[in-house]
Design a protein around this nucleic acid. Structure first.
Length: 91
DNA sequence: AAAGTGACAATTA
DNA sequence: CTAATTGCCACTT
């Protein structure tokens, strides 16, 4: 049997965020719980900020306060709010 | 390896 | 209601 690839925290986070369907959002805290590190909500944000994988719709990850949080695509792009609204998520 | 960083969260004022 | 503070965790350098 093959050895299970020990996915790092960030690898799991990317996997989770990638699985977020369009029109839905997940909070950083929720993602952290899913990764097995509840309370690591901050670490999730840190990873996203340094994440270069476009396969991960990081704009679908918002704060538990209901706010969108930050986004690296602000540069010449639009805010997460615009993207989420396009996907059908109303605040 | 150690210190610094930050796209968060909860509490207090 | 908003602003400021503290605690937390993993990543980057």
């Amino acid at each position: 049997m093959i050895t299970p690839p020990a996915l790092s925290f960030k690898e799991i986070v990317k996997k989770i965020v990638r699985s977020i369907p369009s029109g839905s959002v997940m909070t950083y805290s929720e993602v952290a719980h899913r990764t097995g590190r509840p309370g690591a909500s901050r670490a999730v944000g840190t990873i996203m900020s340094r994440n270069k994988d476009k396969n991960v719709p990081c704009h679908r990850v918002i704060r538990s306060d209901g706010k969108v949080g930050g986004y690296n695509g602000l540069r010449g792009g639009k805010s997460k709010i615009e993207l989420l609204r396009k996907e059908g998520y109303l605040f």
